[in-house]
Amino acid sequence: MADTNKLADCKEGDEATLIGVDDEQLSVQLFCMGCVPGETLLIERIAPFGDPIIISVEDSFISLRKEDAMQMTVKKK
């Protein structure tokens, strides 16, 4: 799909729908924390040097590293 991005490429304040997660182990972890394909992610914060980042799903806030965000495919809103 042409209009998909990696979460790591999003900017602070962006909203995006999670499409999928490449790494399987990572996806299990993320799914359990409510980061499920189809949910809307909001990029809340990006730390200096771009790593780590804070996203929110529904009303939970999750911090993750850039390399994890590279595994997450999203569709920007």
Partner: peptide
């Protein structure tokens, strides 16, 4: 083991 830092930030 891949290093992750996935952490919930509680309210």
């Amino acid at each position: 083991e891949r290093s992750h830092f996935i952490m919930e930030l509680p309210i």
